[in-house]
Computed example of a mutant assay.
Amino acid sequence: SGAPTSAEQAAQVAAPDTMSEGDVDPAGMAFWDGLAAPSGGASVPLTVLRDALVGAGGAFSHVPPVAVSRLLRYVVRRASNAADAAAPVDRRDWELFMHRFGPFRRCVDKALACLFTGEGESTTLAPWFHGAISRAAAEALMGGASPGHFLVRFSENFPTLFTLVYLKSAGGGAMRNKHCLLYNLGDRGYALKREASLSARDVVYPSIAAFVAGNPGILSHPCYSALYHQCLAEVEAAGGIGRGRGGDGARFGGIDVDDDGSIGSGDDGGSDPDADAPEDEDDGGAGGGGAGGG
């Protein structure tokens, strides 16, 4: 018989049930290595990667190709121009994607639930996601905003993690930006702490969008990104219905939200990131454990 396909190779590798910032799912890397072997493993054309994921026998054949294309261009690939469909995806791009959204068997569905709204041609990037911007750039974007404004970015110093940035009152009319790391815990979802540091009172959310929706009192006003506006223009040009302009009603990333703002999936209310969130280690804070400063 012939050599196994990249999808078959990936299926032969056991995927972890939980992940930490140091883990990468070997099944995902086996998929990449099988796909990239003809080109020496350095990079894969975006369309080839998309077709391998959603094509017949692909791990995500149930996902519309247009949704995977937007995911690859706006989230996976580090190239600055998301509209350049010809630019390839390199191995480091894919490795970071596995860290952030693994395990492999769920990575596409998980990433879309985390950072996109809508379906098919209407698949639109969440307005609060800014990609790989620096801490300084995030704080500049928040300048002049009021408490409740927030954004999500890739951590500058810890690129396998996400950073939630939100504005809070520091008293006396002063404002302060808080930077909190978000950890991918594999099948469990996302939390403000590493798996080993979680306590019984910590809430783990199925997606980053669910985390945002579960904390409406603190994360009430998204700071819109240039990536979002670019994606929205693409959706509208393709005849899709732009989602996320002024909010997405009672659904965000496929997670039902009750009228009181709590997550409609069994969680007992929001996790309140300001209560005990570790400070983003970009500024030398506590990182994975302990309370954030101020």
Rank of each mutant, 00 (worst) to 15 (best):
F116S: 04
N215H: 08
I208K: 08
E156Q: 13
Y74G: 03
G217L: 09
G287D: 06
S69I: 15
M29R: 05
D109I: 04
L182T: 00
D33F: 05
S220M: 07
S146Y: 10
V68H: 05
Q230V: 05
D256E: 14
G242E: 04
P88R: 03
L112E: 00
R50S: 09
P222N: 02
V235M: 06
A87H: 08
Y190R: 00
P38N: 07
H179V: 05
G186R: 12
G261S: 10
G287S: 07
G148K: 04
D84C: 00
D272W: 15
F31M: 00
G264P: 11
A83W: 11
P65C: 04
L49F: 08
A85W: 09
G148E: 12
L96H: 02
M142R: 04
R135I: 09
L125V: 04
W128P: 02
H99T: 01
V235W: 14
W94T: 00
R243V: 09
A7R: 14
S155K: 13
F150P: 01
P273H: 01
C180P: 03
P45D: 02
E95P: 06
A87C: 10
G289I: 12
S134K: 14
A275L: 15
G58A: 01
L71I: 11
P159A: 09
L167R: 00
F129A: 01
E236Q: 10
Y183L: 08
E156T: 07
W128Y: 14
M29I: 11
L49I: 01
L141M: 04
G189E: 03
G247A: 12
V63W: 12
E95C: 09
P278G: 14
V89D: 01
S207T: 08
A196I: 13
I241K: 10
L198E: 02
V76N: 01
L72I: 12
I218H: 02
Y224F: 14
S1A: 06
V48F: 10
G284T: 01
S1V: 11
F116I: 14
S207D: 06
P26F: 09
A140T: 09
S20W: 02
D109T: 11
